[in-house]
Amino acid sequence: MTLLAVERIKLFTTRSPWWCALVTLVLTIGFSALIVGNSGDGEPSATVASTQFGYGFGTAVIMVLAALSVTTEYRFGTMRTTFQAIPRRGRALLSKAVVVALLGLVIGEVSAFGSWAVGILLKPEAELALNSAADWVNVAGVGVVYALAAVLAVAVGILLRHSAGAIALLLIYALAVEGLVQLIPGIGNDIHQWMPFNVAEKFLSGDGASNAVDGIAAGAPLSDSPLSQAWALAYFAGVVLVLLAVAIGVAKKRDA
């Protein structure tokens, strides 16, 4: 608990978490207002899934926040002080990952339910009630995805130790690489099915039960992952934890 408290203090005494949290909320809720507000009274109408249309932009900002939580320590040399005070580097880095993940979880839930609430205010006549498990996962699951994405970004930050490099890699991968993989002739679609953020999308959207009105799709395209929602979450979490384990192992063997 002491390590978690130390990491919490270090995180919240800098400005970047506050700014990133604000940007995440503005992007996700603002984008939800834009999409839902411009949905027609007929088809396509607003759905629970369409209120979460902007969560991907929030994911990118959360990863920036998480990467900075690590790389700024390397930049200013405080990571060396941390490792001198806590020789067991794995515990220190794991504590940082937990704190950042919890922050990502909170921001994700606030942004997701905030987006959903804005959707209800703008389109009170639309079918936006959380009446099924699929609806609840589509909204509440955003916080889980943000938490795991934050841990992934911490791992990348540990491996690269450079703010610009880590942020560039994370943003390029999340916003471009997975989509471009589909353009590879022959095997592109097969590879895309197993890309981490595509699988995370499958966890949120499932088979599209919260993404349709009267059986007609009205939201974003669904993930092409063959996994069920539960296995999709397990797969995404597994990829993140393996990457974190590799990053901690590397950090133990090199100079701070």
Rank of each mutant, 00 (worst) to 15 (best):
S210H: 11
L204R: 05
Y146A: 06
L65G: 00
L244A: 10
Y235P: 01
S39L: 04
G58F: 13
Y146V: 08
E109P: 04
A155K: 03
A134F: 02
G219K: 00
F53W: 14
Y235L: 02
W194Y: 15
L244S: 13
L103K: 01
R161L: 04
S163N: 04
F57I: 05
A234L: 01
L222T: 04
T82D: 03
F53E: 14
P185S: 07
V106M: 10
A140V: 00
L204A: 00
W116R: 11
M79P: 14
Y55D: 13
C20E: 01
A174V: 13
G40R: 11
N38H: 10
L152M: 13
V98D: 10
S111N: 03
M195L: 08
F83E: 08
L3E: 15
P196G: 11
V240T: 12
I184F: 14
T82C: 04
F236M: 10
V246C: 09
I187H: 01
L103H: 08
Q229H: 07
P124Y: 08
G249E: 14
L160Q: 02
G208T: 04
T81P: 03
I120K: 12
A140G: 08
A67F: 09
P44E: 06
A101V: 07
L122Y: 02
T2N: 15
M79A: 13
C20L: 11
A126Q: 00
W136C: 10
W19K: 05
I172R: 08
A140S: 09
V100G: 01
L244D: 15
W19V: 11
R75F: 03
A112K: 03
G37S: 06
L65P: 12
T13D: 07
Y235K: 02
N138M: 09
G108K: 02
A117S: 12
G186A: 14
V154P: 05
G219E: 12
L94H: 03
I158R: 01
G37D: 09
I62P: 02
R8C: 09
G119D: 05
G90E: 13
V61L: 05
Y173R: 08
A85K: 06
R161E: 06
N198Q: 13
A112S: 12
T78R: 11
L159Q: 06
L160P: 02
G143W: 03
D207P: 00
V26S: 10
G30W: 09
M1R: 05
A33F: 05
R15K: 06
T51K: 05
D41H: 08
S163A: 15
M195G: 06
N211W: 15
S111R: 03
S223F: 01
G54Y: 05
A112P: 01
L93G: 07
V70G: 03
R80Q: 13
A46E: 04
G114A: 15
G77Y: 09
E7K: 13
S45F: 08
Q84L: 07
N211T: 00
I184A: 09
G249I: 15
